[in-house]
Simulated scan of single mutants.
Amino acid sequence: MISELSNKVFEKAIADYHVHDNIDQVCNNPYPQDSLEHLLYIKNWIDNAQWHMEDVVRNPEIEAAQALYWKRRIDASNQERTDMVEYIDSYFLDKYKNIEPKANAKINTESPAWAIDRLSILALKIYHMQEEVLREDAGEDHKNKCREKLNVLLEQRKDLSQSIDELLSDIEQGNKYMKVYKQMKMYNDPSLNPVLYKK
């Protein structure tokens, strides 16, 4: 099951990242370069770093220049994240290239990789909510509220994992087909962002 594999890789990437918990640490990917696991690990590593960038930029005492610095890093990270999702979709497009969709096959609202992207973010939410449940300096009321949220996140992961596996099964059986649109983000492209090309 792809969801089981994804969740396992995401948990490893999160654990590896938090050994040093440093946004700028080098990603030492343990998986073979041509494997799906390799792509999933990089994807979640990017999400880890961006999660912590988002924390930093929300510091109410941050100086304007520093906030702008982190905002631009977050924008660059978002582009990397999007690129990785498209690489993962390319993996599935290649995997299913010989599947002949049935005449009544339907297209899904999102591609497999964008659903897996949500699973990666969910893994981070679960990790950090678990941290809040175990926080020694937090009161019982805080811990109980976080425990309730954690239970919801765990249920959400179960449901999303099942949906991803069902989508991939439908594609394998020709009941659904993949059609991937590149994101074509305009604000990062100097030829498409009017603030940049009008300079």
Rank of each mutant, 00 (worst) to 15 (best):
R118V: 02
T109G: 14
K149N: 12
M184T: 13
L150I: 03
V85T: 10
K199G: 11
K198G: 09
A49R: 12
P112I: 02
M1R: 12
K8T: 09
V195Y: 14
N59H: 08
E132S: 13
L153S: 04
R81Q: 10
D117S: 12
I116Q: 02
G139Y: 01
G174A: 01
N193C: 03
L160A: 01
D189V: 06
K199Y: 10
I126R: 00
L167D: 03
D165I: 05
K95E: 11
I107V: 11
C146H: 13
I42K: 14
D170T: 08
E132C: 14
D159Y: 12
N188P: 03
N48W: 05
R118C: 04
Y31M: 05
I88G: 00
H142Y: 12
N104S: 15
R73G: 00
N22E: 10
G139S: 11
K198A: 11
K106Y: 04
V26T: 13
H128L: 09
D21S: 15
M129S: 10
W45L: 01
Y41G: 05
N22T: 10
E63I: 10
A105S: 04
Q156S: 11
I88E: 01
S6H: 02
T82E: 09
N98Y: 14
K71T: 14
K158H: 11
S161Y: 01
N78H: 08
E100D: 11
D159T: 14
H142P: 09
I23Q: 07
P32M: 04
P101N: 03
K176G: 04
L167F: 07
R73A: 00
E110R: 15
M178V: 00
Q33V: 15
T109V: 14
S161D: 02
R135I: 06
K95V: 11
N193R: 06
L154F: 03
K71M: 08
D34F: 07
R73F: 00
K149D: 08
M84V: 11
D137N: 13
S161W: 01
A67T: 09
E132H: 11
L5P: 06
V9T: 00
D47H: 13
K182I: 07
L168T: 06
D94H: 11
A138M: 09
S90N: 15
H142T: 14
M53D: 12
A49Y: 06
N151C: 07
M186V: 14
I126A: 03
E172S: 14
N29T: 12
K199F: 09
M84Y: 08
A105C: 03
K71L: 07
K199I: 09
D117V: 05
A15G: 08
Y96S: 00
R72S: 11
H128Y: 15
P30W: 08
L168A: 05
R147H: 09
K143T: 02
Y69D: 13
E131T: 15
D24K: 09
N188G: 10
K145T: 12
S161R: 00
S6N: 02
A113E: 01
Y17K: 03
R135V: 04
K102Q: 09
R147W: 04
C146W: 09
C27H: 04
K97L: 06
E155S: 14
K143M: 01
Q130T: 15
Q79I: 08
A76E: 05
Y127L: 07
S6D: 01
K43E: 08
I171N: 00
V19H: 09
